[in-house]
């Protein structure tokens, strides 16, 4: 019986001795103000849609031109990045008159070696 009383005393002492850890409240971070300023979603400039980290060409161009109110579209961004595209779009529109008639099968026989030489120097890797 004597021993039990002693146990009670020791355990009470122990509990009282521990400190209380105060927990401070957490603050939420605000969204970056850029997208609010330009009205564009993160994915316009950042490659990862969740924003942050690497930027795409439009993002790069927007930062390059001192973060104006509007993000340049792709073609304008490219020119800002020093990429000239002199492409006349009309080349790619089709005229509306009918396509030429199919030529009947009239092909001169080809020498095998000639095909091989021709095929060999293709562009690319």
């Amino acid at each position: 019986m004597r021993r039990h009383r002693m146990f009670i005393i020791v355990s009470v002492l122990l509990l009282a001795a521990t400190l209380a850890l105060a927990f401070h409240p957490q603050t939420a971070e605000a969204l970056p103000e850029y997208s609010a300023q330009t009205g564009e979603p993160c994915a316009t400039c950042h490659l990862s849609p969740s924003g942050g980290g690497p930027r795409g060409p439009r993002g790069q161009a927007w930062v390059g031109s001192g973060k104006p109110g509007v993000v340049p579209d792709l073609v304008e961004a490219l020119s800002l990045l020093g990429i000239q595209l002199d492409v006349d779009e009309s080349q790619y529109q089709a005229p509306d008159q009918p396509a030429p008639e199919a030529q009947p099968l009239a092909v001169e026989p080809a020498q095998a070696g000639q095909i091989h030489q021709w095929l060999r120097n293709y562009d690319g890797n």
Binding site: P57, Q91, Y92, A94, P95, P100, A102, Q103, A110, W118
Partner: peptide, 29 residues
């Protein structure tokens, strides 16, 4: 060039899409 322009069939650029490298066959697109 970052941008690809699609050639409509029959347009002048179509020659670079079909038949550009033909040797013996006619390049009639």
């Amino acid at each position: 060039e970052m941008v690809y322009f699609y050639a409509q069939p029959g347009s002048p650029a179509w020659a670079n899409i079909v038949g550009r490298d033909r040797l013996n066959a006619p390049k009639d697109g």
